[in-house]
Design a protein around this nucleic acid. Structure first.
Lengths: 164, 164
DNA sequence: CAATATGTTCAATACGAATTGAACGAAACT
DNA sequence: AGTTTCGTTCAATTCGTATTGAACATATTG
């Protein structure tokens, strides 16, 4: 491979690492995916440890996470004992899965809290003369309103469009 | 304030901290905003240090960041020397601004890289017989395609809907 | 103008999360 | 059956980043 092409490859790998790093899922994940994505041949864990200078453990864990999100898939190569992985290039599906995994579950715990709060203000309606109580009621309502719209945007736009 | 209401408030603050923490902008930011959001009266930096048990420096920095995103605004209270802050409850605008700030600029550096790559494969078209070269060309094209759609979803759906 | 109160900055520190690597189990060879 | 290769796990460690707090700058008071 030409050295210039190789340099571009390196930049992609570095950049991918920065991106995954900055969204809080670790640098190695992005680097691993980019390396596999820009490799014509399916790659092994050893290839990753060498190319990215990471430990065997790291390589194993990053690949497993990538597999979970459907970002890479294992391919069998006859005569080879090592596991080989190739990249999925349907980014829409990958990101959709990853987002659902990373963000989806977080909403639940927040919902519980919001529902608890709504139950409280409803139950203690008598106190709505109390300015403090009235204030909290307004704030909680605003929060609920936003949360519902966020859900709508999430479901109707982001996730759907990513698939097309 | 009733102790039950106070308990809910604490849970909101804790939850907000977890959320901002998990998206990589620090726990204090979320806690600070939640504290101010759920306070009937404008709050000072000292209020924050006491309520959240954080240092003066932390309080100062978190509030400045929140101000940057329009999440809180300073209000003048006559006779008081300290700065007082109240929360903006237009979450759509807040998140829009924060997202633009956090994500927007990241796209640029990636774009540069992508454009460099496209320039390269175009310039060296002669080598397109080379399987390696052809492979890279395909991968880069896929990436470009996804990036453009991501931009479209971003502009047309997410940012616009957050404002309504 | 000195004294006090307040907000900001940034080098030092503390903390948590990412990474390592040795130990282990499983599978494939001889 | 014994030996080697490979992938996984998880306690120990490393590393980066959030947080602190002392020093400083600025504004306010008497």
């Amino acid at each position: 491979m030409s050295s210039e092409l190789e340099a571009l490859r390196q930049r992609f790998i570095e950049r991918a690492g920065q991106i995954t790093q900055s969204i809080g899922i670790g640098r190695v994940i992005g680097q691993s995916f980019a390396h596999i994505y820009f490799s014509p041949e399916p790659q092994t864990l050893d290839d990753l440890t060498q190319a990215l200078q990471i430990s065997k453990g790291s390589a194993s864990m990053s690949v497993r996470q990538l597999e979970q999100w459907g970002a890479v898939r294992q391919v069998w190569i006859k005569g080879e004992r090592k596991d080989h992985y190739e990249a999925n290039d349907d980014f829409g599906r990958i990101i959709r899965r990853a987002l659902l995994d990373l963000i989806g579950r977080r909403m639940e715990t927040t919902d519980t809290l919001l529902e608890d709060s709504e139950a409280y203000v409803k139950r203690d309606q008598g106190k709505s003369q109390d300015p403090e109580h009235a204030f909290m009621e307004r704030r909680i309502k605003k929060l609920r309103h936003f949360r519902d719209r966020a859900q709508y945007i999430w479901d109707s736009s982001v996730l759907r469009l990513l698939l097309k």
